[in-house]
Design a protein around this nucleic acid. Structure first.
Length: 873
RNA sequence: GGGCGAUUAGCUCAAUUGGUUAGAGCGUCCGGUUUACACCCGGGAGGUUAUAAGUUCGAGUCUUAUAUCGCCCA
């Protein structure tokens, strides 16, 4: 067995082997196996792996490998998303670098170039996921623009249309001037920014004026009313009068509306229904005209009069100067307000009138809420259910059309009628017979196709074998940042089209941040490339660290020091395997010898192991994977390796043949279970290590998940062994305090009550673990050794004759400290046990534990004080 | 404005039906070439669990308020 785990060699070799063997495919479990299906959240096809991908990769692979080992037909279905805007932007950037543009090359050529780009870069992310060890069924890989998925998208669209749930019409939308497309509410991010609030006079027809404030003066040109609160004594008298749009001198009414905030600005509101969502509402209520003053590129249009053709911000400055000149300007002041920006380009989004396609989402949302309310779908962590409900309760119709070229084209056709090129509309896969029909140029929001992902990838709408066998899926694991974008829409669309919840559990993870909780950003220079870590340390350390660094729903602060630590843990597990491997000879019977034949340390480690297995099982059941991983690590590093392995050497080197074999079987059994449990966390090292211990089966990836054998969990055994180990730790500690050369073998004497038998029978524990040459048991009536340091644990006193080294004063100090610590604890415990409420209300087991503890403490205290009084003055 | 989360050792994090002495890693200090491992081993120091009240026999854990930071929604 190699001295160290060579991940660079093993990772590609093992991955290729697993894949070649077909072990990533659900069919390996047989046709009767219960399915366990996870749809991979499809990354952007042209993206490359970042830590967010690494986190979902680690978590999903963990779940899938775990369920595979539990005998399920585990299917992790991978794929990529065409990511409309993101991909189109990348290709546009490429064209720009060539000195060209999408308009210049034209629609056909642009799509051609984009597909080309996809072919060139599309494999990157999936190759990188493989490096992490992702056990996906790559034969089932899907892409949102595949023929099959496009069919599903069209089907979904047509169904909604036929049900009257899709409509097209002019509405106020969030318009992204740079991208030249509408975007949905979710794609707009508002941030607080420093802006200017402009105060000016709104002239009235009667020669007076009302002062008004705005942050966007250029929209004045599109005002169609002036609104005041009817309860506002200052202005109520003006309701019904006319006002005149500054500079343009267009006549508009002064209206009264309750929604006007009297306390904001001047208390009067200019109403621009075509460029503001609130104003649009007011406009609807008062049947106001809509005056659009912007072109699609956010320059001013003809309605802006002499400002036509100017950029929106140039117009803002110019108009304000003109108003100053006209004596209409009052003042400006600095003002912090929320500026809506495009999630993609970062440019300021303008509310603008535009004709778009919408989904009437209410009926779908109702079903989606009901499913979670009924518990058909559970969200982990649960608190996100509230967030989910809040969003769905206030949901707005979904604008699904995008003015992009890269995406699923909306299956609609137009024909000229009475000079209107869109006079006739037909929705369907194909145009109606007869000429003159032109296909809709808009494409669908990327999330429309993503919303179908759990079933479109399985062949829907065809009721094929995969859909029937693997749908609904089980767990949807993804980031909480796309709960609305994606998860809610999958639930809505899944329920609507398949009448089944697309999954029973949503597991949400957080963002991966740097170790100080900062977002990764190129400008901060704190970006960590997961592949750099994989190159340097292997995939296993990164996976284990990501999983154990956080809890569900919370952000993960990745500390690279933890990755290093995990790397060392992996080495530790390898070394344990290596130790076992080199201490075996010949064929070893698998499984455990009868428990009665086993010694205390063996029964102890088996009890600890099975307790661990039970804990890990429970933690997996409640999706606490991080804690599960940490517990396995703690067991191996703090119990198995330092104690049992060391103790086993006694039997290996000086035991009888039977003892030796029994010990070997225990070692192998424990390590085997640990490797199995660790496999989903760190598949590569565990698979490789497993080959070096006797095992049953072809590969760990398809081995059975361990079951806890509760008959092996034994409190009494653990308590007996704990006493010995506690003595060991105290002995080591005392040796340290007296600066006894660690290599020096010393003698120990013990007065042990009930534990005497265990100590005598397991004196090798002390020889192995704390270099005790000889352990001599004294009878109660024997004189206590003088000139010896003493150690008290429970009812055992150990004496270490340290001829010449013992400092009586130091020893007295040590014992006095010990006595006072014990006194305090005794007092605390007595107080607890003296409380009738505690005795009557606490569970019996807790009370009993305190009683036992008190007995131990009192016994120890008695011995310490005796010892103190026997020290020479 | 509404909602959610976080606040635990110098730093990064655990601690899930409330129950012994609140645990790890890194760092730090002391000591070690023990035949699995120096990618290691043994030992130590370091905590009023943000603050204040409350519920409880018992609170890091439950309740309320406050503070700070972060996120989501309007």
């Amino acid at each position: 067995m190699p001295r160290n785990f060579d991940y660079a060699d093993a990772e590609p070799r093992l991955y290729a082997w697993w894949e070649r063997k077909g072990w990533f495919k659900p069919e390996v479990a047989g046709s009767n196996a219960e399915p366990f299906v996870v749809s991979m959240p499809p990354p952007n096809v042209t993206g490359s792996l970042h830590l967010g991908h690494a986190l979902f990769g680690a978590l999903e692979d963990l779940m899938v490998r775990y369920e595979r080992m539990r005998g399920k037909a585990a299917l992790w279905l991978p794929g990529t998303d065409h990511a409309g805007i993101a991909t189109q932007l990348q290709v546009e950037n490429m064209l720009r670098e060539e000195g060209s543009s999408r308009e210049e090359v034209g629609y056909e050529e642009f799509l051609h170039r984009t597909w080309q780009w996809k072919e060139e870069h599309g494999g990157t992310i999936t190759r990188q996921l493989r490096r992490l060890g992702a056990s996906c069924d790559w034969d089932r890989e899907r892409f949102t623009l595949d023929d099959g998925l496009s069919t599903a998208v069209t089907q979904a669209f047509l169904t909604l249309w036929e049900q009257g749930l899709i409509y097209r019409g002019p509405r106020l939308v969030n318009w992204s001037p740079g991208l030249q497309t509408a975007v949905s509410d979710l794609e707009v991010e508002s941030t607080e920014e420093e802006a200017t609030l402009y105060y000016f006079k709104y002239p009235l027809g009667d020669g007076g004026h009302i002062p008004v404030a705005t942050t966007r003066p250029e929209t004045i040109l599109g005002d169609t009313a002036l609104a005041v609160n009817p309860a506002d004594a200052r202005y109520a008298g003006s309701i019904g009068k006319s006002a005149f749009v500054p500079i343009l001198r267009r006549e508009i009414p002064v209206i009264g509306d309750d929604s006007v905030d009297m306390a904001f600005g001047t208390g009067a509101l200019k109403v621009t229904p075509a460029h503001d969502f609130n104003d649009y509402e007011i406009g609807q209520r008062h049947k106001l005209a809509l005056v659009n003053v912007l072109n699609k590129d956010a320059s001013m249009n003809a309605n802006a009069g002499k400002y036509a053709g100017m950029d929106r911000y140039d117009c803002r400055d110019r108009l304000w100067r003109d108003m100053e000149a006209a004596g209409l300007a009052i003042k400006t002041e600095a003002y912090t307000t929320r500026i809506p920006r495009s999630q993609r380009g970062g440019e300021v989004v303008e509310p603008m009138m535009s004709t778009q396609w919408y989904v009437r989402i209410q009926p779908l949302a109702e079903k989606a809420m009901a499913a979670v309310r009924r518990g058909d779908i559970k969200i982990v962590p649960e608190r996100y259910e509230k967030v989910y409900f809040h969003w769905l309760e206030n949901i707005q119709d979904w604008c699904i059309s995008r003015q992009l070229w890269w995406g699923h084209r909306i299956p609609a056709w137009y024909r000229d009628k009475d000079g209107d090129p869109e006079g006739e509309i037909h929705v369907g896969r194909n145009p109606p017979l007869g000429g003159g029909w032109v296909m809709e140029e808009d494409v669908l929001d990327t999330w429309f196709s993503s919303g179908l992902w759990p079933f479109s990838t399985l062949g829907w709408p065809s009721e094929s074998g995969d859909l029937e066998r693997y749908y609904p899926t089980q767990v949807m694991e993804t980031g909480h940042d796309i709960l609305f974008f994606w998860v809610a829409r999958m639930i809505m669309m899944g329920l609507w089209f398949t009448d089944k919840p697309p999954f029973h559990t949503v597991y949400l993870h957080g963002l991966v941040r740097d170790r100080h909780g900062k977002k990764f950003s190129k400008s901060l220079g704190n970006v960590i490339d997961p592949l750099t870590i994989v190159d340097k340390l292997g995939a296993d350390p990164l996976r284990f660290t990501l999983i154990t660094s956080g809890t569900p729903g919370n952000d993960v602060n990745l500390d690279e020091r933890r990755v290093d630590h995990t790397f060392r843990f992996i080495n530790k597990v390898w070394q344990i395997t290596s130790f076992i491997n080199m201490n075996l000879e010949g064929d070893l019977e698998l499984g455990l010898p009868p428990v009665e034949e086993l010694d205390l340390p063996a029964r102890w480690i088996l009890s600890r192991l099975h307790r661990l297995i039970a804990n890990v099982q429970h933690l997996f059941d409640i999706y606490q994977f991080g804690e599960a991983g940490s517990q396995i690590l703690a067991f191996m590093w703090d119990e198995f390796a330092p104690y049992y392995l060391e103790i086993s050497k006694h039997f290996m080197y000086s035991g009888t043949e039977d003892e030796k074999i029994a010990t070997q079987r225990v070692l192998v059994a424990v390590q085997d279970s640990c490797l199995r449990m660790l496999h989903p966390f760190m598949p590569f090292m565990t698979e490789e290590a497993w080959r070096y211990i006797p095992h049953d089966g072809e590969a760990l990836i398809i081995a059975d998940w361990p079951n806890a054998n509760t008959t092996l969990i034994d409190d009494e055994i653990e308590a007996r062994m704990n006493l010995l180990l506690e003595l060991v730790r105290e002995l080591r500690n005392t040796r340290g305090e007296y600066k006894v050369d660690p290599g020096k073998r010393i003698k120990a004497l013990a007065k042990a009550g009930a534990a005497a038998k265990d100590m005598a029978a397991h004196d090798y524990v002390f020889r192995r673990l704390c270099n005790v040459e000889e352990l001599q048991l004294l009878a109660a009536e024997d004189p206590t050794p003088t000139n010896a340091a003493s150690i008290v644990v429970s009812d055992v006193t150990l004496y270490l004759p340290l001829e010449g080294m013992l400092d009586i004063e130091a020893e007295r100090g040590r014992l006095e400290g010990e006595a006072s610590r014990l006194t305090q604890q005794i007092a605390k415990t007595q107080k607890m046990l003296g409380n009738d409420n505690f005795l009557s209300k606490a569970p019996e087991a807790v009370v009993q534990r305190e009683r036992d503890r008190l007995a131990d403490l009192e016994s120890a205290h008695k011995q310490v004080t005796e010892r103190l009084s026997s020290l020479p003055r």
